[in-house]
Design a protein around this nucleic acid. Structure first.
Length: 584
DNA sequence: GCCGTTTTCGGCCCGACTGTTTTCAGTCG
């Protein structure tokens, strides 16, 4: 059975190989779009291919040819056209495409003229002078190739993408520098970071200023800059010492909105907006939306329609303003009003937090004080259960003492409800780590998988369904147990979990830590369309964890979550009523 | 290869920067 990632990888490889053979660029682009669509699809494509292939027709960017290939891969285990391409094009060439500044034309040139079919070949050809002998390969290009190979060797130990919670603080440090530069009017980050993706390939910064040179200076002289990739009047790119690339775009403030639209993307969304502009006799670029019909002025410049704000541009295109997190290719219809997405300020409770009783750094009172300072009406103390020995999980006896301590603390602090809870391990077979008689004494139960995270999808589905259906469980914590760039975690049938969670009124958690973000965005999308309740929790172990809420909110928004279905946004009365409903 | 409030054929977003060239091709986002 082919996973969505495997199908996406097959299309991506087809695109690479086609590109090297010099195929039609639009055909290559179609495969790249199909790749993104498969990566973003919450449903299991292999299952759809087997059980209801017509549903594949509804996926943006999947047509008759790519649909047939998905079915072929699912039923035969391979794609004939891909195998044919692999016979024609040496496999090492697609790796050459990953080198900085190397595209399909360069790869083809190196292959044709110097028989380069791998990065090792390229290294040899550079040092032997074979590359320099190729037409249009000047000294500077050879140097750039040598650097690109060296960077590739170095990158072996480095991630190719950076997690959102690692990238955002770096972006904000650069924005602080830019805002302090003379002439700066506005500065922000855009790109996939603004769209809230769980990892970013690079950072895109945008600054509007009256002094382009000062902004450029502030950017290029930052202490963490390690390598200059490009610098022009309006655009600079650098690599930091940690390997992260940052692009800066400098514009006049009158064009800030147009530049923000352009720089936020996604790529597919930009194409959509520009095509829509064309249909209306207009042109959209990073400087504005312009009329292309007869209204051009005497000097040949086009009449400006909108540029100063995103709102103005969307309005002029007869579209509602869509939140950045939903500007992705899978969004169904941008002409419809977007959902009113949940916002950070609407979160009024934290339902997953640890204390010194297990592996947290805060006492019950310190935790409650932190939550109160954030304006929350409720904080749940959910220390680990006994199976999590490595996290100092609580025995039944310790748990009962802890409940008593929580009751005392609540009486002492006042002004906030402290719930006595537990983050109970879901054992590999789906049983919970405490007996029902113990769980019944708790105000809230978060059930989470911590071990056996490599079990089969079927076993994982059965295990998590058991927890969702357990009458005393309120929240399924970090459902897959994935660690971004660490481990894949479980691969349960998400649709089945969503159906059960909706039926049982069990909330599915978005764990806000940037190394988890679990549920991930596509899972949230599936949960939202199934009508599930969602909990957005920081899984607080120490005070800084509470600041991760923004990443969970971004993930929730990418999934289309509205306030009504987020239990943390409910009033105390509604939240406590829901919790008690599982205690009758 | 995908797609359709002008189309089932003929389009398909747009511009900056670099390097090798004297006007442009390649790459990137």
């Amino acid at each position: 059975m082919a996973t969505n990632q495997e199908i996406a990888k097959a299309f991506s490889t087809i695109a690479d190989l086609l590109e090297i053979t010099g195929a039609n660029a639009f055909k290559v682009g179609a495969y790249r779009k199909a790749t993104r669509s498969c990566e973003d699809e919450p449903r299991d494509l292999g299952r759809l291919a087997r059980e209801s292939p017509t549903e594949l027709d509804s996926i943006e960017g999947i047509g008759q040819s790519t649909k047939a290939k998905i079915i072929e891969l699912e039923t035969t285990g391979s794609i004939h056209e891909l195998e044919e391409l692999r016979l024609k094009v040496p496999p090492g060439l697609s790796l050459l495409l990953t080198l900085a500044g190397v595209g399909p034309k360069t790869v083809k040139l190196l292959w044709d003229c110097a028989q380069v079919t791998s990065i090792d070949d390229l290294r040899t050809a550079i040092e032997s002078g074979a590359v320099a002998a190729i037409p249009r390969m000047g000294a500077k290009t050879v140097t750039n190739l040598r650097d690109a190979v060296a960077a590739h060797d170095l990158a072996g130990s480095r991630p190719t993408r950076y997690r959102l919670g690692e990238a955002i603080p770096i972006a904000e440090a650069f924005l602080t520098r830019l805002r302090a530069a003379p002439g700066t009017v506005r500065a922000t980050y855009a790109g996939s970071a603004r769209r809230g993706r769980d990892t970013v390939g690079d950072l895109d910064l945008l600054v509007s200023t009256r002094d382009h040179a000062a902004a450029k200076e502030a950017f290029l002289t930052a202490p963490t800059v390690s390598k200059l990739l490009a610098q022009g009047e309006t655009k600079c790119a650098v690599v930091l010492t940690n390997g992260l690339q940052i692009d800066l775009r400098i514009v006049d403030d009158s064009a800030f909105g147009a530049a923000l639209v352009y720089f936020t993307g996604s790529k597919d969304h930009n194409v959509f907006l520009r095509e829509r502009a064309n249909q209306r006799a207009m042109k959209l670029n990073e400087y504005g939306l312009f009329r292309t019909d007869s209204s051009a002025s005497a000097d040949g410049s086009l009449a400006l329609v909108a540029a100063e704000s995103e709102e103005a541009i969307y309005r002029a295109l007869d579209l509602p303003l869509w939140p950045a997190e939903l500007r992705e290719s899978h969004t169904a219809d941008f002409t419809q009003p977007p959902p009113r997405l949940i916002e950070l300020a609407e979160i009024k409770s934290e339902l997953h937090a640890h204390t010194t009783a297990s592996d947290g750094s805060l006492s019950i009172l310190e935790l409650a004080t932190l939550a109160k300072a954030r304006g929350f009406h409720t904080i749940a103390v959910t220390d680990h259960s006994k199976a999590s020995a490595q996290a100092n999980g609580l025995s039944v006896e310790r748990l009962l003492q802890h409940i008593a301590a929580i009751r005392e603390a609540e009486a002492a602090i006042g002004g906030i409800t402290i719930l006595a809870g537990s983050e109970v391990d879901i054992l590999a077979d789906g049983r919970l780590d405490y007996d029902d008689a113990v769980l019944e004494q708790l105000d809230i139960v978060v059930a989470s998988p911590h071990t056996a995270l490599r079990q089969s999808p079927e076993a994982a589905t059965a295990r998590l369904l058991a927890a969702i259906r357990h009458p005393l469980v309120h929240i399924l914590g970090h459902p897959t147990g994935r660690i971004i760039q660490g481990r894949d975690g479980l691969s349960p049938d998400i649709e089945a979990l969503c159906v059960a969670a909706h039926e049982c009124k069990t909330a599915l958690e978005i764990n806000c830590h940037w190394s988890r973000l679990d549920l991930r965005d596509v899972h949230v999308r599936a949960a939202v369309s199934a009508g599930c309740l969602i909990a957005i929790d920081c899984d607080i172990h120490s005070p800084p964890d509470a600041d991760n809420l923004r990443y969970g909110i971004a993930t929730a928004r990418r999934g289309g979550l509205c306030t009504s279905h987020c239990v943390n946004a409910w009033s105390a009365e509604k939240l406590h009523g829901w919790l008690r409903s599982k205690r009758s």
